[in-house]
């Protein structure tokens, strides 16, 4: 159980770090949101479930899983809201062809 938890946490940390690197490297708002929205969601999800595995069957684990579910629902919604704001205010998407 502990080993599984640590593996999950390591995976989560890996995705969180990759998401941050993507934030820096990607060329425009929309592509950055891909990195932010996906990697962060899965990263924190994995850290939470990993810690829940590490704790075993106690109340804290249930709370951790509730927090994970909450992030799973809200994070894409927040990403979508920000993307919508960018689109409504006329930010154009970066294309590979337009920047050659």
């Amino acid at each position: 159980m502990t080993v599984l938890g640590m593996a999950l946490i390591s995976g989560g940390v890996f995705f969180l770090v990759t998401g941050a690197v993507g934030m820096v490297r990607f060329p425009d708002i929309y592509t950055r949101m891909h990195a932010a929205g996906k990697c962060d969601t899965l990263g924190s999800l994995l850290v939470m479930t990993g810690l829940a595995c590490h704790d075993g069957f106690v109340l804290t684990s249930a709370k951790l899983l509730i927090a994970a579910g909450f992030i799973l629902v809200t994070s894409p919604t927040a990403t979508h809201a920000i993307a919508r704001a960018a689109r409504q205010s006329g930010v154009e998407a970066w294309t590979a062809e337009g920047n050659r």
Partner: peptide, 12 residues
């Protein structure tokens, strides 16, 4: 979701 993340990792 996991597949999506691996895709993003590849793109990063």
């Amino acid at each position: 979701i996991v597949l999506a993340n691996l895709h993003v990792v590849h793109l990063v």
